[in-house]
Every structure is written in structure tokens, then in C-alpha cells.
């Protein structure tokens, strides 16, 4: 009787699930027929015929949609990985300051974390873009012998150009994520038993040496999983680039949908590519985690 009930229940759930998927596919087919576009990817080879302000590789509007998407991906990866590094660096510093002995630094970092975490990311991005960069005049600051130049066009540093859009996104994403990373770091440090602090202190080790040699190695296994999920969030949040007009993959997809009406194909491309990127991040972090655990032969 009990086994029969279980089978019946599972059978029921399956029917409901397949029913829902069926309805979705049906809707999709009806809509595709209605637009008269069909489902194919041949349009990817046609010229994109829109300009991109920012392209790390050569790009003109006569290049194909595929090439435009690749440029979008490169722009996305550029901002994701530079924010990831900056956020980790900032977050680590603030996390340490938060747990450290210095009361003033602790208070400042607690305030930073509170303000950043209690306000929406979109608002912060807008702030950095409109107040931070567009607020600057042309060549507002004195050029240092043409090496470093900051203006409302962005920053120029010894031949390297960073647009205002890129910098606003970089600042916004890094600062936003750093507040969360700081909390992850703090949690990791607090997970190490008090006795370990007392032991290194009683041996005459300085706070910084004790932190590096004793506390951090033991905190890392607790930090890595939290860090991974913050990295994944950062990658996904980078799609807010569209708000400041940075040509990331999402913004370019949006333009392509407007031009071609290929919403379903575009979203499939977007979903699959983000899935792949986040799987890559997860796997790299898992590899790091495994290496750390392996080096800790005792566990």
C-alpha cells in the first residue's frame, strides 16, 4: 500500500512536470509561427550594422552578429575578471580591518559594509557613472606629462584607455562585491578557534605573522565556498552594464534582439554562455579548494 502510494505520487509529479514543459513548448511554437521567423541561427553570419564604442579586438559595423557577440563577451570577461580581482583585494582588506584589533578601522569597515550592502547595485552603478565620471569636466585634472589623464571620457594611463562606462562598472561591481567578500572573510576568520590566536600570541608571534601563518590557512576552507558564490553573483551582476551603456554581452544581445527579433535564439545564447562561464568559475574555485584541502594532509 505504502509503496503503491509512493509510485502513484511520483507518477503524478511527473505528469504535472511534463504538462508544464509541454505548455511552455506549445507557447513557444505558437509565438514562433506568429512572428513568422522560425527557429534558426543563420542570421548570426549577417552583418551587425551597429557600432560599438568599446572593442578590444578590431570591429566595424559591417562585421557579423557573431563577431559582435564575441566582442560583447570579451568586454564582459574584461569587466568581470578585473572586478573580481579588485573586489577580492578590497574585500580582504576590509574583512581584516573588520576583525582586527584597531577599533577605528573596525568601525569604518563596518560602516562601509553596511552602506554598500543596504543600497541597490543599480543605484551604485548610476552613482559612479553620473556622479563619479560624467561629473568630471574635460581634462579636469592636470595631465601628468601625458602619462595619466582623467576626465569625463575616462582614464588614460600611459597609452591605455579606460572608458568612463568601463570604470563606472568596474568601481560599482568591485565595491559592491567587496562588501560581501569582506563578510565572507570575516566569517572565515571567526571560524578559527580562539585557542589558535592565544597559541600564536603566547609564542610571541606578531598579529600579522599569526594571521598569515596560523589563521588564514585554517580559515580558507571556510572562505572558498562563500567566495565562489560571490564571484558567481559578480558575473551575473555584470549584466547591469546596460544601465551605464557599457557594451557587454547582455547589452549587445539586447541590441540584436531589437534589430532581428530573434529573442529566443539570443536568450539561449546568453543562458548557455553564462552557464558555461559560471561553471568555469565554479570549477576553478573547486580546484583551488581541493588543492588547499590536499595541502592539509591532516584533514
Amino acid at each position: 500500500m505504502k509503496i503503491n502510494q509512493k509510485i502513484f505520487l511520483q507518477f503524478g509529479i511527473c505528469i504535472i512536470l511534463f504538462g508544464l514543459i509541454g505548455i511552455l513548448i506549445n507557447n513557444l511554437i505558437i509565438n514562433l509561427i506568429r512572428t513568422g521567423l522560425g527557429f534558426n541561427f543563420s542570421w548570426l553570419l549577417k552583418p551587425a550594422s551597429f557600432a560599438l564604442a568599446e572593442h578590444p579586438l578590431p570591429y566595424t559595423s559591417s562585421d557579423s552578429y557573431t563577431w559582435a557577440l564575441i566582442i560583447g563577451w570579451l568586454n564582459s570577461l574584461k569587466v568581470i575578471f578585473s572586478s573580481l580581482i579588485l573586489a577580492t583585494f578590497l574585500g580582504t582588506l576590509i574583512g581584516f580591518a573588520r576583525t582586527g584589533k584597531n577599533a577605528l578601522l573596525g568601525l569604518i569597515s563596518a560602516g562601509y559594509i553596511t552602506i554598500i550592502r543596504q543600497t541597490p547595485l543599480l543605484l551604485q552603478l548610476m552613482f559612479w557613472y553620473f556622479v563619479g565620471f560624467l561629473g568630471l569636466k574635460d581634462n579636469m585634472f592636470i595631465q601628468i606629462k601625458n602619462i595619466f589623464n582623467i576626465s569625463n571620457q575616462g582614464v588614460e594611463f600611459s597609452g591605455l584607455n579606460f572608458s568612463s562606462e568601463f570604470l563606472a562598472l568596474l568601481m560599482g561591481l568591485s565595491i559592491f562585491t567587496s562588501a560581501y567578500i569582506a563578510e565572507v572573510i570575516r566569517g572565515g576568520i571567526l571560524s578559527v578557534p580562539r585557542g589558535q590566536w592565544e597559541a600564536f600570541r603566547s609564542l610571541g608571534l606578531s598579529e600579522s605573522k599569526g594571521l598569515i601563518r596560523i589563521i588564514i590557512p585554517q580559515a580558507l576552507p571556510a572562505i572558498i565556498p562563500g567566495l565562489t558564490s560571490q564571484y558567481l553573483n559578480l558575473a551575473k551582476n555584470s549584466t547591469l552594464a546596460i544601465a551605464v551603456g557599457y557594451s557587454d554581452i547582455y547589452a549587445i544581445n539586447d541590441t540584436i534582439i531589437n534589430q532581428t527579433g530573434r529573442a529566443i535564439e539570443c536568450f539561449i545564447i546568453l543562458l548557455v554562455s553564462f552557464l558555461l562561464l559560471n561553471l568555469l568559475i565554479t570549477n576553478i574555485m573547486e580546484l583551488i579548494n581541493r588543492l588547499i584541502l590536499k595541502s592539509r594532509q591532516y584533514s
Binding site: 589558535q196 592565544e198 603566547s202 585554517q218
Partner: peptide
């Protein structure tokens, strides 16, 4: 602290270091 040694109830050895490394660290 450089001239005084301390032994704790919970030992507080450093679990990620070998026995000899625990001793040579300081």
C-alpha cells in the same frame, strides 16, 4: 611572551602544521 612559555588545556596545536613545524615555527 618571548621569554615565557604557555601550555593550554585544549593543547591548541596548529592543526595544519606537522609536529616538528609546530615546534620550530616560533
Amino acid at each position: 611572551r618571548r621569554r615565557v612559555g604557555m601550555v593550554f588545556q585544549q593543547f591548541n596545536l596548529f592543526p595544519h602544521l606537522s609536529i616538528l613545524e609546530n615546534i620550530t615555527l616560533a
